[in-house]
Computed example of a mutant assay.
Amino acid sequence: MSFNALYTDLSGYYDLMCEDIDYPAQSDAVRRLHQIFGNGGNAHLDLACGTGPHVRHFIDHGYLSSGLDINQPMLDIAATRCPEAHFTCQDMGSFQVNDPQDLITCFLYSIHYSDGIEKLKACIASVHNALKRGGVFCFNAVDKDKIDNDLFVKHTAKKADDLFTFRSGWYYSGSGDKQALKLSIEKTNTCDTQVWNDEHPMVAVSFTELITLLEPYFEVHVFEHNFEAITPWNNISGNAIFVCVKI
């Protein structure tokens, strides 16, 4: 299996893999945050948009939404799901927009796809350049110092006669600015079982480091990773939602 095969050859499994994600709850939470901290505009860009489920929800609530991703097969699915939206195949570390945005989102910890601190810095600068003054950058992140390498999430899903088991977990060596997202898909039917394993290089950053990177560009607000209530970060938990207002 090629290094990035899960997001290319097996991109058709992506929505099934994410079947247990509550996209409406995530989108609604970010819309509430945007109403509180934003500039009142509705131009929205979703970074690492994948197959476009978040974009769909923002469009349905009156936003002029667009998306970008580095993977064209994902964008092909997104374009079918959201024919009203404009999608581009770009790297979120060096993207450009035709029109300034009021809200830029990056869900599902995808900010970590900036592989290394320098690429993360470039992503933050690109977001700043793409936003209007008073625009909001909202994303979730994980603190490298709080990662438990033994933890993983798992869920199963049925499709036709196949049973799929999906697993994912973070791995951090304990030093440096690189961590990994480890993923696996197990497909079982009456004939056989197939397993695909994949590992994605990710940027490793503590929340203290991340806030330091953001503050030259934004007014930074950090909240608990809770899509049901807006609660300030307790300075302890290793998952958080960042709301960054362009200054």
Rank of each mutant, 00 (worst) to 15 (best):
L6E: 04
Y7P: 09
D9Q: 15
D9P: 04
E19N: 07
I21R: 12
Y23K: 09
A25S: 11
V30P: 00
Q35K: 15
G38E: 02
G38K: 05
G38L: 09
G40F: 10
A43H: 14
L45A: 01
L45C: 05
P53M: 03
F58A: 00
Y63R: 08
L64D: 12
S66H: 10
I70Y: 08
L75V: 05
A79R: 15
T80G: 04
Q90T: 07
D91E: 04
M92K: 07
M92C: 06
G93P: 02
G93M: 03
S94T: 13
P100S: 08
Q101T: 02
I104D: 01
C106I: 04
L108I: 12
I111K: 03
Y113K: 00
S114M: 08
I117V: 15
S126H: 06
L131D: 00
D145V: 05
F152G: 00
H155E: 02
T156V: 09
K159W: 07
S168G: 12
W170Y: 13
Y172P: 09
K178R: 15
A180E: 11
K182A: 00
I185N: 00
N189M: 05
W196Q: 08
H200Y: 12
H200M: 12
M202T: 10
S206V: 01
F218I: 10
A229E: 11
A229C: 04
T231H: 07
T231Y: 01
T231D: 00
P232T: 06
N234I: 08
N235C: 07
G238D: 01
F242T: 02
K246D: 00
I247C: 07
